[in-house]
């Protein structure tokens, strides 16, 4: 995996090669697989995301009873046509919440990069495909783009709430999805890196404070901001807006913030929302 987005961009420019292609070649080398195997494995993950979205069950509740059925509420509102966000973003919200709920209800999802943030990538990718009619192969290329960004974040910083707070999970998922969305809009490597940076910047500092230590509250709904933020970041990048702080430095900032974060905000379920009177009460009721 690459150690910097700058390196990915330079290599893409020097070799006149798409960013996703570099990530695929790197995967072939790292895992010792053929081009076809690498592509098919990634495509399968994309199709699994699609299947997971279709398999949403609106009646299911999580073990704690805190989560379930909200995706259906957004779907209903979207169909009624009165959402401020309109039909497209309405769909994005719906997919994000549904996937987060499916995860909390022990259904199959694709961790991207983590289980808690599993709704962001599908919310962006599935809806862009539905809206714009991209082929599954094109979507698979976008998955490679996202994985390349995630790989750099894993190398330079972290992808787990326990290590760096929610900025490392929802923030990274958003950066990955933003890059993928920029690619689908025709963005080159620089635009992709910019989109990722703009997305991550907006979520820097986000704490990991799950109520009762469960991947439910606030995780499910945070998938919404992760996906919407990815789309606005991709739009900004494609409109020609740049990140004044270079993408790799943004990732480094995420790391330094994560290191400064107290343990109570790193998935221990002891700070932030988890430590509110209501959060505490929910935990006590669970015991």
């Amino acid at each position: 995996m690459y150690a910097s987005l700058e390196e990915l961009c330079c290599e893409a420019e020097e070799k006149n090669c798409a960013l996703w292609e570099l990530v695929l070649r790197d995967d072939m080398q790292q895992r010792g697989v053929s081009r076809r195997e690498s592509f098919e494995a990634t495509k399968k993950l994309y199709l699994t995301m699609k299947k997971a979205d279709e398999d949403y069950e609106k009646e299911l509740l999580s073990h704690s009873g805190l989560v379930g059925g909200d995706g259906e509420k957004i779907a209903k509102a979207r169909r009624e046509g009165w959402l401020y966000c309109g039909d497209f973003i309405g769909h994005v919200m719906e997919t994000a919440v549904k996937m987060g709920e499916s995860n909390a209800c022990m259904k199959k999802i694709v961790a991207a990069p983590t289980a808690g943030s599993c709704g962001v990538m599908p919310a962006v990718l599935l809806n862009l495909q539905r809206e714009k009619g991209f082929t599954d192969d094109r979507m698979t290329e976008a998955m490679f783009v996202a994985a390349g960004i995630g790989g750099v974040i894993a190398n330079r910083a972290f992808l787990a709430g326990a290590s760096g707070g929610c900025q490392a999970e929802i923030g990274s998922a958003s950066a990955m999805a933003a890059g993928a969305a920029a690619y689908l809009a025709g963005g080159d490597a620089r635009k992709i890196a910019t989109a990722a940076a703009l997305a991550l910047k907006s979520l820097l500092g986000l704490a990991c404070d799950p109520v009762a230590g469960l991947v439910e509250v606030p995780c499910v709904k945070r998938n919404v901001i992760g996906s919407v933020n990815a789309l606005t970041a991709a739009d900004m990048a494609m409109a020609g807006i740049s990140s004044r702080i270079p993408p790799d430095e943004v990732i480094d900032a995420m790391k330094s913030i994560g290191i400064c974060m107290p343990t109570c905000l790193k998935e221990t379920g002891t700070g932030g929302l988890a430590a509110t009177p209501t959060g505490e009460r929910i935990r006590e009721e669970m015991d």
Partner: peptide
């Protein structure tokens, strides 16, 4: 860590450490 650890695994939720692990 490889690419399939970044996106993936396909797993039953809710937690990679507490469920998949």
């Amino acid at each position: 860590m490889n690419m399939l650890d970044i996106i993936g695994p396909a797993m039953v939720g809710p937690s990679s450490s507490h469920t998949a692990g």
